[in-house]
Amino acid sequence: MFCQVFVNFQSVVAISETQKLAIIDNCEAIRENLKNVQKLDSRMRVFFGQHFEAILSKFIIPLNLRLVENSLSNTNLIENQNEFASKKTAFAADFISYQQELENLMMLDCKSNPEKFYEKIEVVRGKREIVFNDVARMKKLITKNMQLVEKMKAEV
Protein backbone atom coordinates (compact mmCIF):
# COMPACT_ATOMS: atom_id res chain seq x y z
CA MET A 1 0.00 0.00 0.00
CA PHE A 2 1.38 3.32 -1.01
CA CYS A 3 1.02 6.36 1.11
CA GLN A 4 0.87 9.50 -0.77
CA VAL A 5 1.86 12.59 1.02
CA PHE A 6 0.75 15.80 -0.51
CA VAL A 7 2.86 18.67 0.43
CA ASN A 8 1.72 22.08 -0.44
CA PHE A 9 4.67 24.17 -1.45
CA GLN A 10 4.06 27.87 -1.39
CA SER A 11 6.55 29.90 -3.27
CA VAL A 12 7.77 32.69 -1.10
CA VAL A 13 9.65 35.59 -2.55
CA ALA A 14 11.72 37.10 0.19
CA ILE A 15 11.57 40.86 0.29
CA SER A 16 13.38 43.12 2.70
CA GLU A 17 11.71 45.41 5.19
CA THR A 18 12.79 48.41 3.11
CA GLN A 19 11.13 46.98 0.02
CA LYS A 20 8.01 46.15 1.98
CA LEU A 21 7.74 49.71 3.31
CA ALA A 22 8.43 51.14 -0.15
CA ILE A 23 5.62 49.06 -1.66
CA ILE A 24 3.23 50.18 1.08
CA ASP A 25 4.24 53.85 0.79
CA ASN A 26 4.24 53.93 -3.01
CA CYS A 27 1.27 51.64 -3.51
CA GLU A 28 -0.82 54.13 -5.49
CA ALA A 29 2.09 55.27 -7.62
CA ILE A 30 3.00 51.66 -8.41
CA ARG A 31 -0.60 50.93 -9.39
CA GLU A 32 -0.68 53.98 -11.63
CA ASN A 33 2.57 52.88 -13.20
CA LEU A 34 1.17 49.42 -13.85
CA LYS A 35 -1.95 50.94 -15.42
CA ASN A 36 0.24 52.89 -17.83
CA VAL A 37 2.25 49.78 -18.62
CA GLN A 38 -0.98 47.91 -19.34
CA LYS A 39 -2.14 50.64 -21.73
CA LEU A 40 1.20 50.88 -23.51
CA ASP A 41 1.47 47.11 -23.82
CA SER A 42 -2.00 46.95 -25.33
CA ARG A 43 -0.94 49.52 -27.90
CA MET A 44 2.24 47.57 -28.67
CA ARG A 45 0.35 44.32 -29.08
CA VAL A 46 -1.98 45.86 -31.63
CA PHE A 47 0.93 47.49 -33.45
CA PHE A 48 2.99 44.30 -33.67
CA GLY A 49 -0.03 42.09 -34.25
CA GLN A 50 -1.09 44.17 -37.26
CA HIS A 51 2.38 44.32 -38.75
CA PHE A 52 3.16 40.66 -38.23
CA GLU A 53 -0.18 39.78 -39.82
CA ALA A 54 0.59 42.08 -42.75
CA ILE A 55 4.01 40.52 -43.24
CA LEU A 56 2.56 37.02 -43.17
CA SER A 57 -0.44 37.66 -45.41
CA LYS A 58 1.02 40.26 -47.79
CA PHE A 59 4.56 39.00 -48.13
CA ILE A 60 5.49 35.55 -46.88
CA ILE A 61 2.42 33.56 -47.94
CA PRO A 62 1.99 35.18 -51.38
CA LEU A 63 5.70 34.69 -52.10
CA ASN A 64 5.52 30.99 -51.31
CA LEU A 65 2.39 30.60 -53.43
CA ARG A 66 4.07 32.35 -56.33
CA LEU A 67 7.18 30.19 -55.93
CA VAL A 68 5.03 27.07 -56.06
CA GLU A 69 3.36 28.37 -59.22
CA ASN A 70 6.80 28.85 -60.78
CA SER A 71 8.02 25.45 -59.56
CA LEU A 72 10.58 27.22 -57.40
CA SER A 73 9.14 26.11 -54.09
CA ASN A 74 11.70 26.48 -51.31
CA THR A 75 11.47 24.20 -48.24
CA ASN A 76 13.28 26.70 -46.03
CA LEU A 77 10.87 29.47 -46.95
CA ILE A 78 7.90 27.20 -46.28
CA GLU A 79 9.36 26.25 -42.90
CA ASN A 80 9.91 29.94 -42.23
CA GLN A 81 6.27 30.63 -43.08
CA ASN A 82 5.01 27.85 -40.81
CA GLU A 83 7.16 28.95 -37.92
CA PHE A 84 6.17 32.58 -38.38
CA ALA A 85 2.46 31.70 -38.40
CA SER A 86 2.87 29.50 -35.34
CA LYS A 87 4.85 32.11 -33.43
CA LYS A 88 2.28 34.76 -34.29
CA THR A 89 -0.44 32.65 -32.69
CA ALA A 90 1.78 31.99 -29.68
CA PHE A 91 2.46 35.73 -29.34
CA ALA A 92 -1.29 36.46 -29.03
CA ALA A 93 -1.78 33.64 -26.51
CA ASP A 94 1.28 34.64 -24.46
CA PHE A 95 0.15 38.25 -24.45
CA ILE A 96 -3.28 37.27 -23.12
CA SER A 97 -1.66 35.19 -20.39
CA TYR A 98 0.61 38.11 -19.47
CA GLN A 99 -2.24 40.60 -19.38
CA GLN A 100 -4.34 38.28 -17.20
CA GLU A 101 -1.52 38.11 -14.66
CA LEU A 102 -1.01 41.87 -14.85
CA GLU A 103 -4.67 42.41 -14.19
CA ASN A 104 -4.56 40.00 -11.23
CA LEU A 105 -1.56 41.93 -9.91
CA MET A 106 -3.39 45.24 -10.18
CA MET A 107 -6.30 43.81 -8.22
CA LEU A 108 -4.06 42.88 -5.27
CA ASP A 109 -3.91 45.18 -2.29
CA CYS A 110 -0.27 46.25 -2.09
CA LYS A 111 -0.80 48.06 1.21
CA SER A 112 -2.10 45.10 3.19
CA ASN A 113 -0.03 42.38 1.53
CA PRO A 114 3.19 43.72 0.00
CA GLU A 115 4.87 40.30 -0.02
CA LYS A 116 2.17 38.71 -2.12
CA PHE A 117 2.15 41.79 -4.33
CA TYR A 118 5.88 41.51 -4.95
CA GLU A 119 5.57 37.79 -5.57
CA LYS A 120 2.97 38.53 -8.23
CA ILE A 121 5.25 41.17 -9.80
CA GLU A 122 7.82 38.41 -10.31
CA VAL A 123 5.21 36.24 -12.02
CA VAL A 124 4.20 39.12 -14.29
CA ARG A 125 7.86 39.79 -15.12
CA GLY A 126 8.24 36.19 -16.21
CA LYS A 127 5.19 36.38 -18.46
CA ARG A 128 6.36 39.65 -19.96
CA GLU A 129 9.72 38.11 -20.75
CA ILE A 130 7.97 35.39 -22.74
CA VAL A 131 6.18 38.04 -24.81
CA PHE A 132 9.45 39.92 -25.24
CA ASN A 133 11.09 36.73 -26.54
CA ASP A 134 8.16 36.08 -28.90
CA VAL A 135 8.61 39.48 -30.55
CA ALA A 136 12.38 39.02 -30.77
CA ARG A 137 11.89 35.60 -32.39
CA MET A 138 9.40 36.98 -34.93
CA LYS A 139 11.88 39.70 -35.90
CA LYS A 140 14.57 37.05 -36.40
CA LEU A 141 12.19 35.07 -38.61
CA ILE A 142 11.59 38.13 -40.77
CA THR A 143 15.35 38.63 -41.11
CA LYS A 144 15.76 34.97 -42.00
CA ASN A 145 13.04 35.28 -44.64
CA MET A 146 14.85 38.22 -46.21
CA GLN A 147 18.14 36.32 -46.18
CA LEU A 148 16.54 33.33 -47.90
CA VAL A 149 15.00 35.58 -50.54
CA GLU A 150 18.36 37.32 -51.09
CA LYS A 151 19.93 33.93 -51.67
CA MET A 152 17.15 32.99 -54.07
CA LYS A 153 17.52 36.29 -55.92
CA ALA A 154 21.18 35.46 -56.57
CA GLU A 155 20.21 32.06 -58.01
CA VAL A 156 17.34 33.25 -60.24
Binding site: T18, A22, I23, I30, N33, L34, V124
Partner: peptide, 9 residues
Protein backbone atom coordinates in the same frame (compact mmCIF):
# COMPACT_ATOMS: atom_id res chain seq x y z
CA UNK B 1 8.74 46.30 -14.64
CA UNK B 2 12.11 46.54 -12.92
CA UNK B 3 12.28 47.51 -9.25
CA UNK B 4 13.81 50.82 -10.23
CA UNK B 5 10.99 51.74 -12.58
CA UNK B 6 8.32 50.69 -10.09
CA UNK B 7 9.90 52.66 -7.27
CA UNK B 8 10.90 49.62 -5.23
CA UNK B 9 14.41 49.73 -3.77
Amino acid sequence: LSNERLGIP
